Simulated assay, not measured.
Amino acid sequence: MKRKLNQYTFQNWFRNFKAVCKQLIIPFTIFQAIRTFIFPTTIDVLLLAIFIAISLAYHYEWI
C-alpha cells in the first residue's frame, strides 16, 4: 500500500535543506545562463535546463 507524503512529517534538516535550495536555485540559474551565453557547451546547456526545471518545480510547488 502506497502512502502519500505529508510535507509536515519531514524532519527539520530536510525542510531546512529544501528552503536553502529554494533560495539558491535562482542565483545559480542566472549565473549558469550567463555562463551558457558566453561559453556555450553541451554540459552548460544541460545544466541550465536542469536548473530551469528545478526552478519551475519550486515555483509551481511540484516539489
Rank of each mutant, 00 (worst) to 15 (best):
A19E: 14
I30N: 01
I63Q: 06
F37A: 14
C21L: 06
I38Y: 03
F28R: 08
K4D: 05
I50V: 09
R35H: 14
N6Q: 10
H59L: 07
P40C: 02
Q7G: 07
F37E: 05
K18S: 06
I50Y: 01
T42W: 11
V45C: 06
L48I: 10
I54Y: 00
S55H: 12
I50E: 00
L24D: 04
I26K: 15
T42N: 14
Q7S: 11
I50W: 00
R15Y: 04
L24Y: 09
R15L: 15
Y8R: 13
I34G: 03
A53C: 01
Y8S: 07
L5I: 04
K4S: 09
R35C: 06
F37C: 10
I43S: 15
Q11C: 12
R15F: 04
I54E: 01
A19D: 10
K2V: 04
H59T: 13
V45S: 06
N6P: 01
F10D: 03
N16G: 03
I25K: 02
S55Q: 11
S55A: 11
Q32M: 09
Q23G: 14
K22Y: 05
I63S: 08
F17H: 04
F17M: 13
K4V: 02
A19M: 15
K22V: 07
H59E: 08
N6F: 05
F10L: 15
I34R: 05
Y60R: 13
V45M: 08
L48Q: 08
A49K: 01
P27A: 08
Q7Y: 09
Q11Y: 04
Y60W: 12
E61W: 01
A57V: 12
L24T: 15
N16V: 14
I54T: 07
N16F: 06
L47V: 15
R3D: 02
A57K: 11
Q32G: 01
Q7T: 15
T41D: 12
A49F: 00
K18T: 14
C21Q: 10
Y8W: 08
M1N: 10
M1W: 07
F14H: 03
F17T: 15
P40V: 11
S55N: 12
I25R: 05
I63G: 09
A49I: 13
R3G: 02
W62V: 07
D44K: 14
Q32S: 08
V20P: 00
